[in-house]
Amino acid sequence: MAMRQTPLTCSGHTRPVVDLAFSGITPYGYFMISACKDGKPMLRQGDTGDWIGTFLGHKGAVWGATLNMDATKAATAAADFTAKVWDAVSGDEVLTLAHKHIVKSVNFTQDSTCLLTGGNDKVLRIYDLGKPEADPHEFPGHTSAIKKALWCNDDKQILSAADDKTVRLWDRNSTDAVKTLSFDSSPSSMELVDGEILVITYGKTIAFYNALSLDLIKTVEAPTSISSASLHPDKDFLVAGGDDFKLYKYDYSTLEELESYKGHFGPVHTVRFSPDGELYASGSEDGTLRLWQTAVGKTYGLWKCVLPEELVSETTDPVYNSTPVDIKA
């Protein structure tokens, strides 16, 4: 008998949730950060959604957020023309990096010594976090706002997706664009899985590329305009969400749609698998984050009990962390 998905709902944000990211697996489990238009990014325990703290200091919508692998540092990209680096353990702001326009994307190198940023001023920048007063390394070339920028190839190269309908691969040392992919609409999201597979969404298309050669592997067409897609760490499944409030799950090898269900009360802006692949998180225009089980009915995190379907009320939707308290008043 098919089990019904019972998501854990993480409330606390007051505006649309536009980006989320997981840390790697640490001795304390793994963690999740969410970016929200309320300007108050939140840190949570990844497997339960339990609220840990809120990073206070931005004066505008936060468009991008990330954690380093061991969840000791966080970085955020915001509409106040800054990127900020935070101590993710204490919640303290470590650095503010001033930009010339809205910042949309932040990404740490594997060793957490450098931060890559991108945004509406169309320039990629690398900041050396050990020398924050030094001028950043700049990569001009995009002709519209940059949506997402990621390190790849052991931090020797950079991938960027922009509203000029391109995804570009850059050489870190020469600052040259090595390769450009062009699309018929702006890429809405980009994810790098295991440094090998690049997941790009544009329009209703979810496309998979070899991350090093940028050769197309396969695409799948969804029934709605897709804002974000994520590939399971074992590359078994992918999930996607977009304009029709639904979440879609596909088999990666056959691209068959396995399930779809209404996940939120507004468009889905971001979806990501956890580092252990046991769950995926979604963030929406409705101001919530939801956690979903990859294997429904498995005892994991706060999903303790397995009830026959007829005993699960249609209204069962546990809400945790309904009243978060800020780290710093």
Rank of each mutant, 00 (worst) to 15 (best):
C114F: 00
I158N: 00
T270P: 05
T117L: 11
L115R: 06
T14N: 14
A65Y: 07
L67A: 01
L258S: 13
T66P: 03
N173A: 08
M1T: 13
L115M: 09
T14A: 04
L307D: 08
S260R: 14
S227N: 13
D317T: 14
V167T: 04
D251Q: 07
T48M: 01
D163T: 12
T254N: 01
D70W: 11
M42F: 15
V220M: 11
A222S: 09
L214N: 05
G118Y: 07
T205I: 15
S322F: 10
V62M: 09
T315Q: 13
A88L: 06
I146L: 02
L8F: 07
Y261C: 10
L198V: 03
L43R: 08
W63Q: 11
S105L: 05
D87L: 03
I52Y: 06
G53T: 11
L289I: 14
E93W: 09
H58T: 13
P223N: 10
L279P: 02
T48C: 02
W292T: 11
D234C: 06
G46Q: 04
T201M: 05
V178H: 00
A78P: 02
T109Q: 10
S230H: 02
L115I: 14
V85S: 08
G57M: 09
N153R: 07
M1Y: 12
I158L: 01
T316Y: 08
G60E: 06
D326G: 09
Q110D: 08
G39M: 11
D47M: 03
T294F: 03
Y320I: 14
T316K: 11
T72P: 09
T205F: 12
C152M: 03
M3S: 15
A78W: 02
V89M: 13
L279A: 10
K156T: 12
D236H: 10
G263M: 01
K73S: 15
K73Q: 15
G60Q: 07
T205H: 09
N120F: 10
V319H: 12
G266D: 13
H264C: 11
W303K: 13
C10N: 04
